[in-house]
Design a protein around this nucleic acid. Structure first.
Length: 220
DNA sequence: AAGCTAATCAACCGCCTGACG
DNA sequence: ACGTCAGGCGGTTGATTAGCT
């Protein structure tokens, strides 16, 4: 999943890092630090440019780097911070120990972006209205979901009481919507007013798409 | 099985900023 | 004030993998 290694015309190696290169860089930085990235490759015996070494260290070799999947709390925090800070990935990464800005950025574009943009517009002021509503973006807004859920809870007292009584059940729709890898039911993207009307008038109208989803089914 | 498409993520590029002379 | 250099940041690219037809 990485670029094929090659030597450019300046004799600098580019593309994927070999295990040997990783070891050289890791050993050197752990022993001598990285006070000067430009000079580092020369002394570490690497045919790389300083920028490339820095990037490799920051995004992959750093000992404090966390590997593996993002947990629910991390994803929620990223979404929250992105709302506050916009695309300032380094600032976001600073609040998520063990995650690199590059990694967070990739995760955002791959997994989280599609859950957020439709209902809000305050993070990217330069984005035009037509750009907000692309077909490939599901457009879920995590911040809005608790509002919907509270109202939904008021309307459906019996169901919500049952949910609240049992600590093992999901407490709110906010948590409900953040279960990894499964999109929230499409009815949440409907305008809130219509949604509420549908709920109060005829439960059968809205309930079907909810039940179609395997993780919503047990709670209804 | 083969071909195509989408998703993933490491790595690169270009620009910006701050330090220094 | 200006130029140069190094580090850092955000956007983009491209190789690989997974999933679908």
């Amino acid at each position: 999943m990485v670029r094929t290694p090659f030597i450019d015309r300046d004799g600098i190696k580019r593309g994927a890092w070999s295990e040997d290169e990783d070891n050289k860089l890791k050993t050197f930085v752990e022993r001598f630090g990285h006070s000067n990235w430009r000079q580092l490759p020369k002394y570490a015996g690497l045919m790389r440019c300083g920028k490339s070494c820095r990037l490799r260290w920051m995004n992959y070799l750093r000992p404090d780097l966390k590997k593996g999947n993002y947990c629910l709390e991390e994803e929620q925090l990223i979404i929250k911070l992105h709302k506050e800070l916009g695309n300032r990935w380094s600032a976001i990464a600073a609040k998520l120990p063990g995650r690199s800005d590059n990694n967070i950025k990739n995760h955002w574009h791959a997994h989280l972006k599609k859950r957020t943009p439709r209902l809000t517009n305050n993070t990217t002021s330069s984005t035009s209205t037509s750009e907000q509503f692309t077909d490939d973006e599901a457009g879920y807004d995590m911040k809005e979901l608790p509002i919907i859920s509270c109202d939904l809870s008021n309307k459906l007292n019996g169901i919500t009481d049952w949910i609240e009584e049992d600590n093992n059940h999901i407490k709110t729709m906010e948590q409900f919507s953040c279960i990894n890898s499964v999109e929230p039911p499409f009815c949440w993207t409907e305008p809130i007013d219509n949604f509420q009307t549908e709920i109060t008038s005829d439960i059968n109208i809205w309930s079907e798409p909810l039940f179609d989803n395997f993780w919503t089914q047990p709670f209804f």
